[in-house]
């Protein structure tokens, strides 16, 4: 059996590198990287394709601007995706989940070859969990959210999914949209060799016009987006372990959080 898979990959500002200045997030000069859960989705795609015995894996991303996207998407190609499809259009600036979903759904339709459409359960920066569901609705496909285990079965897909209080096993025919949770797998490390190979893999670029789409305006207005104030003491204790531990525990006793 041959299984064609599209993995929707978002590149996000590296949350760990975001500095806060006067409670505002500083986003200038922050590196962008492939989302954590999308790496799980890519790993799941590679395993499913192996199980099927063949098929093409495409990494699909939507960006409003450049964001060095050709560089960042190489991470997905180096992990093992065969091709990348980039939808880049300045008209996507300010687009939220509905706009991104419209572009993704149109791109999947244009790609055509897609049995399984994979998403992260949420993107690293937004974590809204909406995009997968919106794309499934636009395509009119069934969806399975929060997959922690995926297998081919009976010509379709069988998934164990992790819900709030239960593990539910669902079966769906193809094509199907699936979002994955982080416990589904440990994404494979990327070797230098594969980074070199990634440079030679095909990359297709489309604009919204190529997809027959107009800009989709934002459906939301951000009133504010501020960090909580943090005022911490930052005391590190030096010395041998016993000295560190003594000073540390004494400090906690003084603070009144341990001891009688």
């Amino acid at each position: 059996m041959s299984l064609d898979i599209v993995v929707c990959v978002k590149t996000n500002p590296d949350a760990q590198m975001i500095r806060i200045k006067n409670r505002e997030p500083v986003l200038e000069a922050i590196p962008y990287k492939v989302g954590d859960l999308e790496k799980n989705a890519l790993e799941a795609a590679l395993q499913l394709r192996d199980a099927a015995g063949g098929g093409t894996i495409r990494a699909l991303t939507v960006v409003e601007g450049d964001r060095k996207i050709r560089e960042t998407i190489k991470e997905a190609l180096a992990m093992g995706a065969d091709e990348a499809v980039i939808v880049a259009d300045p008209a996507l600036a300010g687009a939220d989940q509905a706009g991104i979903a419209a572009a993704l759904a149109a791109a999947v339709a244009k790609i055509g070859a897609c049995d399984v459409l994979l998403f992260g359960e949420g993107s690293t920066d937004n974590y809204s969990g909406q995009v997968g569901a919106r794309v499934a609705e636009l395509l009119g496909w069934p969806q399975i959210g929060y997959a922690k285990k995926l297998a081919l079965a009976g010509g379709g897909i069988e998934a164990e999914r992790s819900m709030d209080e239960m593990i539910e096993t669902l079966a769906a025919p193809l094509p199907v949209a699936v979002t994955v949770v982080s416990e589904i797998n440990e994404p494979r490390p990327i070797s230098l060799m594969n980074i070199l190979k990634a440079g030679k893999k095909p990359v297709t670029e489309w604009t919204l016009a190529d997809l027959g789409l107009d800009a989709v305006g934002a459906q939301k207005r951000i009133v504010s987006n501020l960090a909580e104030e943090q005022d911490r003491k930052h005391v590190l204790f030096a010395g041998a372990v016993d000295e560190q531990v003594d000073a540390f525990v004494n400090a906690l006793v003084k603070e009144g959080v341990v001891g009688r």
């Binding site: 939220d96 809204s128 969990g129 909406q130 995009v131 919106r134 609705e137 636009l138 709030d164 939301k220």
Partner: peptide, 23 residues
């Protein structure tokens, strides 16, 4: 915004042409 509610939110919002905020 349970897991079921979160995945439902995106789908129903898309059907209704609605914006959605989750979590």
């Amino acid at each position: 915004s349970t897991r079921r509610g979160k995945e439902l939110g995106g789908r129903v919002a898309q059907k209704l042409g609605a914006g959605c905020v989750s979590d």
